[in-house]
């Protein structure tokens, strides 16, 4: 994760230069909070979409759709309402500038078990029955 992130931070500072200025190449406000649900780590599998490497316009359209209610969401409709147009633009630019990580981005990936905690290597192994 470290290298990918370092690269991402490098790329993002380029993105940041063309959008809202962020201090020290850091993610724009709100971006860090997304990985509570949208996995950022390549080691995490989830039914929830990864944001890194998505097209900028696709992110903007999705956020605006959730915000206006035109696009159905479970929680994103409620969350998108907390972001202004400028913030959405900055978030979209940031995520679009990051290399696609995780499953899609890694052809060598051995498929992880679906959904289960087995996918997390830090998990304490289950006792043998």
């Amino acid at each position: 994760m470290g290298k990918a992130l370092a690269a991402a931070i490098g790329l993002a500072s380029i993105a940041a230069a063309v959008t809202a200025p962020t201090a020290f190449g850091q993610p724009p406000p709100g971006a860090a909070a997304c990985s509570g649900c949208h996995p950022a780590s390549a080691r995490v599998t989830s039914p929830v979409v990864r944001l890194a490497g998505l097209e900028r316009d696709a992110i903007v359209r999705a956020m605006q759709g959730f915000r206006s209610g035109q696009r159905a969401g479970t929680v994103m409709d409620r969350i998108a309402k907390g972001f202004t147009d400028d913030e959405i633009q900055a978030l979209a630019a940031w995520f679009a500038a990051q290399p696609k990580g995780g499953e899609e981005g890694n052809p060598a990936r051995v498929p992880l078990p679906k959904g289960g905690e087995e996918g997390n290597p830090a998990r304490v192994p289950l006792p043998k029955k």
Binding site: S35, G36, C37, H38, P39, A40, S41, R43, V44, T45, S46, P47, V48, T74, V75, G115, G116, E117, G119, N120, P121, A122, R123
Partner: peptide
């Protein structure tokens, strides 16, 4: 039912991000 699935997905993601 979808939110129950998303609840589990959230736990899986957050613990993966924090410890995995």
């Amino acid at each position: 039912a979808a939110e129950a699935v998303l609840a589990e997905a959230w736990f899986h993601t957050i613990t993966g991000e924090v410890f995995g």
